[in-house]
């Protein structure tokens, strides 16, 4: 039993790297996902993940499969899309979903076209689905570095972001600098999407960010509890997903996201907060 759980990580260096990278990702990204979900901007994460694609593809065109070049291109493209999404949101009074959908479809198509100019099907697969078992030193450094930046930055921004999400008018009246914190927040999302891209590709980069966050909604009633629950679910999904990928010979990125999806399904059914089971299982009411 223990052999099946730990053996692959003891035996193979690439499994250890994949685990360290994914756990770093699982610690940093889910709290961002929780805030995105509470701001009702889950779609923004998807848009940013696809928005970085043309930048990554441009980096690939210039320098091939090089982590620094692709990350730099992705960072520039992601920040541009974040700015554009913010401007769209203000221009449309918060009803930006249709415009954002248009934006990410264009970005994805542009990215795929750019890669096809020079690369082959293997490169395209790498871009879209990632290669978690091929995480090299540069990619591992990027993933760990992003987590190292994200956690303290988020700790500083946590209170203003929570306040602005809960009561934007109050935040404005108190001069809480909401726009500034929001830009920092979007930058963190872009960085995490880039880190996730290394392992899971642009199509599934937000899997470890959003799925655990949505699942956590069924386990906690308070913001910090949601963040802890999301991190725990993400870390467990990364571990279990990698194992499943090893033992069942599945592609690793989709295996991790599927595991997180399974965790979400279990949460919807069995979670204590608004779970289906809690709703069906009618316990006797209290006296007061």
């Amino acid at each position: 039993m223990l052999e099946a759980l730990l053996g692959p990580f003891v035996e193979f260096g690439f499994m250890r790297r994949a685990l360290v990278g994914c756990v770093a990702l699982a610690v940093a990204a889910p709290p961002l996902g929780v805030l995105l979900m509470l701001r009702r901007t889950s779609l923004t994460a998807e848009v940013l993940a696809h928005g970085v694609t043309p930048g990554i593809a441009a980096g690939f065109l210039v320098a091939g499969l090089s982590v620094p070049a692709m990350s730099l291109g992705g960072l520039v493209a992601g920040l541009l899309v974040a700015l554009g999404a913010g401007a769209l949101s203000r221009a449309t009074g918060g009803r930006e979903d249709a415009a954002l959908t248009a934006l990410y479809l264009i970005a994805l198509a542009l990215g795929v076209t750019l890669v096809s100019l020079r690369g082959d099907t293997g490169d395209l697969t790498h871009l879209l689905f990632g290669q978690v078992l091929g995480v090299d030193d540069a990619a591992l450094l990027l993933m760990a570095g992003v987590a190292t930046i994200t956690l303290p930055a988020l700790a500083l921004a946590w209170r203003p972001l929570a306040l602005e999400t809960f009561d934007p008018a109050f935040a404005r009246a108190e001069g809480a600098q909401g726009a500034l914190w929001h830009m920092l927040f979007l930058t963190l999302v872009v960085l995490n999407v880039l880190a996730a891209f290394q392992a899971m590709g642009t199509l599934m980069a937000v899997g470890l960010m959003m799925l655990p966050a949505v699942a956590a909604r069924h386990w906690a009633r308070e913001l910090s509890g949601l963040a802890y629950a999301a991190v725990a679910i993400a870390a467990a999904s990364a571990f279990a997903g990698l194992l499943a990928s090893y033992h069942l010979d599945l592609p690793s990125g989709p295996a991790i996201v599927l595991t997180a999806g399974l965790a979400w399904a279990v949460s919807v059914v069995a979670g204590p907060v608004d779970g289906l089971a809690a709703r069906l299982l009618r316990r006797p009411h209290l006296a007061g």
Binding site: L38, L156, A157, R159, P160, A162, L163, T165, F166, D167, P168, A169, F170, E174, A176, W181, A220, R221, E222, L223, G225, L226
Partner: peptide, 29 residues
């Protein structure tokens, strides 16, 4: 303000909402 602009389903404890009133003194940190 009138309540319309507020997210009343936000996962926050009552005590923490009251403490928001200290923002001008405590700020973000």
């Amino acid at each position: 303000p009138q309540q319309a602009g507020m997210d009343r389903t936000f996962p926050i404890l009552c005590r923490d909402v009251v403490l928001q009133g200290l923002w001008s003194r405590l700020g973000p940190f």
